[in-house]
Nucleic acid binder design. Sequence first.
DNA 1: TACGCTGCCTAACGATCGTTAGTTAGGCAC
DNA 2: GTGCCTAACTAACGATCGTTAGGCAGCGTA
Lengths: 197, 197
Amino acid sequence: MVETTRRQAIEDVASDLFREHGYAATSIRDIARALSVQGASLYAHVTSKEDVLWAIVERAATRFEAAADRAELEAESHRPGDAAEAIAALVEAHVDVLTADVDEAAVFVNEWRSLGEERRRQILDRRDAYQARFRRHVEAGIAVGAFAMTDPSIAASSILSAINGVAAWYDPNGRLPADRIADHLVDLVLRMLEGSR
Amino acid sequence: MVETTRRQAIEDVASDLFREHGYAATSIRDIARALSVQGASLYAHVTSKEDVLWAIVERAATRFEAAADRAELEAESHRPGDAAEAIAALVEAHVDVLTADVDEAAVFVNEWRSLGEERRRQILDRRDAYQARFRRHVEAGIAVGAFAMTDPSIAASSILSAINGVAAWYDPNGRLPADRIADHLVDLVLRMLEGSR
DNA sequence: TACGCTGCCTAACGATCGTTAGTTAGGCAC
DNA sequence: GTGCCTAACTAACGATCGTTAGGCAGCGTA
């Protein structure tokens, strides 16, 4: 990963440290040390510690949203009204974004509560809206009998918990490539919804 | 919740605050303030801040393990060798423990990385052993054709992520009672494994 | 009445926190 | 050469951190 700007380099090592130790347990001087620089030097590139967290979280949120936009559009053009197709596309898009930058994604998933009041609420709202996409497709699938009867809220939340869990163990150099992991998750999620018992 | 000892009261409010703001972002004085007491006063009952976290995490770990022991025993005595029965019992037991004390469970799930080296490794080992229970039953179910072909590691990890996700939204005064939530999760998980596509 | 236990207090310790101020050195544009 | 930009430095600020020391009030028991 070759950084173009110093600011990018700071956010990259911050993502790494925030993921490993958490935002509150990571000091400005920790980030600086990883860059072989004095703590105070970072303030030439950054206005506050929380701004660094915000940059990471906001970028990740935007990536997830944009990927979900594309996934829903493509699913709709490919098989209009097919709830399973839409869910599959959403899950695959989510895992793609997550594996493309695990550190950033893990910080987004776990550290948003460390943001200040206003920003925390904004992320919370965007997370709710994101989860609502899943829930709507679950509801649509139930309505046409494609999915088993279930609580759409719990189902949507469980799906997101399951795929976000990938951030806890995914290793770019691990046993499985990212796209195979995405395939597995799509399978699991679709069975969870479609399966007959 | 009526505390019997002062130590219990400290751990209860610590669970609450650790869950809300995280271990690193919660100070000893924050905990004391919630008890209308000076920060230094807590050291009459506690030897260190990390000891409080450890007490919470260790107790939660023991509860999950004990509940899983009972669940596996009962499933085995009820329907020996039935993988679906075993998984169902494990999921229900897990959700039961989790909803019985959400604060404690959420701290166990999210804050174990704040422990020191030795204790962190111990919890990590116990988590691995716990997850292995799920994985073994998934493997057994696949072996006898009861479960669909899948990656047992990914399946076990996804199951645990999904049910741990309940800790993020469960509200004792919420829409659904704990046992109904457990039923929903058992349904979702079994469909995820058994479902034919 | 004397003792010891529980629970809390005030005061302070050294360390570390996020952040600001002021300065310096090198590279590129005019 | 002059001037600006980037990137870094040293020094220090007030605040807060986890923790220790020593003392005091209330209570039950001998």
